[in-house]
Design a protein around this nucleic acid. Structure first.
Length: 121
DNA sequence: ACAGTGACAACAT
DNA sequence: TATGTTGCCACTG
């Protein structure tokens, strides 16, 4: 059976370089689901109740919305934590939790890598 | 099977 | 710019 959408999302996120960020929508596009941005956010949200030892290597803090803003409505504490994690790896995050995409945006994977993730790996 | 849920995004005001 | 609205989606009881 093919990998679940969530697993594919985690695989992509794991490949975001340290100090760079990308958006929910871009990840959805990379996986061939241009309209599944919301589901990507849902997948990352699911990490919060992961079982011990799994999902620890998913750098979820490197995913922001299309405007370059940290998107965690009704979760101020988590938003602040995400900002701190990003600053810790060299990304400038303003007081308004905004990030300059022209400077930190990760363009994404090459199709060969995408194919690898989609199939199996 | 089906309605509800959200860490989205594009568009309209 | 700042909200509000609408379309979309994978996953869950």
């Amino acid at each position: 059976m093919a990998r679940s959408f969530y697993e594919q999302v985690y695989d992509v996120v794991r490949r975001i370089p340290q100090g760079r960020v990308t958006s929910y929508g871009r990840i959805a596009n990379m996986l061939g689901r241009p309209h599944a941005a919301r589901a990507v956010g849902y997948a990352l949200s699911a990490l919060k109740d992961r079982r011990p030892g799994e999902g620890d290597d998913v750098p979820w803090q490197r995913v922001v919305n299309s405007q370059g803003r940290i998107s965690l409505p009704n979760r101020e504490d988590a938003a602040v934590r995400q900002a701190e994690l990003l600053r810790a790896e060299g990304v400038y995050v303003g007081e308004d939790l905004r990030i300059d995409l022209d400077r930190y945006l990760w363009e994404g994977l090459h199709w060969v890598e995408i194919d690898d993730i989609m199939r199996r790996s």
